[in-house]
Simulated assay, not measured.
Amino acid sequence: MSAESNLHGSYAYTDTLKGVFYGPGSVKTALPKLLDMLGAKKALIVTGKSLFNKTDVVKTVESILRERDAYGATFHDIGEHAPVAGIRAGLQKFKDAGADVIVSVGGGSPVDASKAILYFLHQERGGAYVPQIAIPTTLSAAEYTVGAGYTNEEGQKVGVNAPELAPSGIILDAELTLATPERLWLSTGIRALDHAVENLYRPLLPPPIKHLCYAALADLFKYLPASKADPLDLEARQKLQIASWMSLWPLKLPKYSALGLSHLLGHKLGATYGIPHGITSCLTLASVVALKAETASKEDKEWLAGALFYLRKPSTGSLEGDIKQLSVEIQQLVDGLGLHSTLSQYKVPQNDVQTVADRAVGKEDPLFPKVVGLLESIYA
């Protein structure tokens, strides 16, 4: 039996994370509590332009910090996919503010950019890593990982990785998500679904975490349509934030373990063609799951097929049939949320399909022709 079988493994929580606080309105009490836990005196807020300019969310966080005399500055020049120029500018802002903690507010880009800023700072100064408190307003779940992706000068997605880069505190306050644009909110929910599904066949992941992913799947399928139907439903939004947490539960693996093909394709498509993180999952996830019905190991097929039970859907009578049905259910959810997308819609040249497949798996991989076919199937 393989040493990476589900019957062998280990589990540990991340060393860095001090606490996840959740509930509508929780930022008012949780942020001061986390500052005390970390002994932090001066914060740099890292956020995006839209959240800063078009909502009161950042002002709410600023006012809490000002009451504690812990406000240093706000940096909002973070673009989608975290371009490296913004990271360098954020690092300088951190130094100028005399900050000793970053409070990231927004989606995956501010969270990942904050990790990258702290990584670059550590490269310069050494010593202990400076902590981050993450206040997410989307469902992308970047706050639960130890790695960060950013876009280099050539437009390629690159990454940094260290256990200490995981945020030290996370605040899930559904009230702060009310200003998030619907398409961003719902599409990052599909990103969370992507995490939950790909964790079912992710190497080294222990079975208890996979069962959390089943729970995440069930809640995402239930509460994403509910949130679309009533955008002011705070209970649905809070349930979705918790489902996002369950989809990418913080853990320490014995060695690096990538999620899967849907994420791999998403990384190649997102940075190169400017496709938002959530939309890349809308593009690729259902098709990747259908491909898994052909290519996955028996053990991985069993985990994928098991998802139908949690979605309260009857079995088709075979593992492969159940996985194909899961693919259909995912695509129907995406379409029902108004998120159906194509590569041509995002101006990906059709001639680039083989290049994307090559960057994702390599031409020598036996899977290469199937990945090309997958990309061609979602082109138009």
Results as ranks from 00 to 15, higher is better:
Ile133Val: 15
Glu143His: 12
Val130Gly: 01
Tyr129Ser: 09
Tyr129Gly: 10
Phe120Glu: 10
Arg125Gly: 04
Ile135Val: 15
Glu124Phe: 07
Gln123Ile: 05
Thr145Val: 15
Phe120Ile: 09
Leu121Glu: 09
Pro136Thr: 13
Phe120Met: 13
Gln123Val: 05
Ile135Arg: 03
Ser140Gly: 14
Thr137Gly: 06
Pro136Glu: 10
Glu124Val: 07
Ala134Gln: 09
Glu124Tyr: 00
Thr137Leu: 08
Ala142Ile: 11
Phe120Arg: 05
Tyr119Pro: 02
Ile135Lys: 04
Gln123Lys: 14
Ile135Trp: 01
Tyr129Asn: 03
Leu121Asn: 07
Gly127Cys: 06
Gly126Ile: 07
Gln132Val: 14
Ala128Tyr: 05
Gly127Val: 01
Ala142Cys: 08
Tyr119Arg: 03
Gln132Thr: 12
Thr145Gly: 15
Gly126Met: 05
Ile133Gly: 08
Pro131Cys: 04
Ile133Ser: 04
Tyr119Ser: 07
Tyr129Cys: 10
Pro131Ile: 09
Leu118Tyr: 03
Gly126Thr: 07
Ser140Arg: 00
Pro131Asn: 01
Ala142Asn: 01
Ala128Asn: 07
Leu139Pro: 00
Leu121Met: 12
Gly126Tyr: 04
Gly126Pro: 03
Val146Arg: 14
Gly126Cys: 00
Gly147Trp: 12
Ile135Ser: 05
Val130Ile: 13
Leu139Arg: 06
Arg125Thr: 13
Pro136Gln: 11
Val130Tyr: 01
Arg125Glu: 12
Val146Glu: 14
Val146Ala: 15
Ile133Arg: 09
Ala134Thr: 11
Pro136Trp: 10
Ile135Leu: 13
Ala142Leu: 09
Leu118Asn: 03
Thr145Trp: 06
His122Cys: 04
Tyr119Ile: 02
Pro136Lys: 11
Tyr129Asp: 05
Ala142Phe: 06
Ile135Asn: 04
Leu118Trp: 00
His122Ala: 10
Ile133Gln: 03
Tyr144Leu: 15
Gln132Trp: 09
Pro131Phe: 02
Val130Asp: 00
Ala128Ser: 15
Pro136Phe: 11
Tyr129Val: 09
Leu139Trp: 00
Val130Phe: 05
Glu143Pro: 10
Tyr119His: 14
Val130Leu: 08
Tyr119Phe: 15
Tyr119Met: 08
Leu118Val: 07
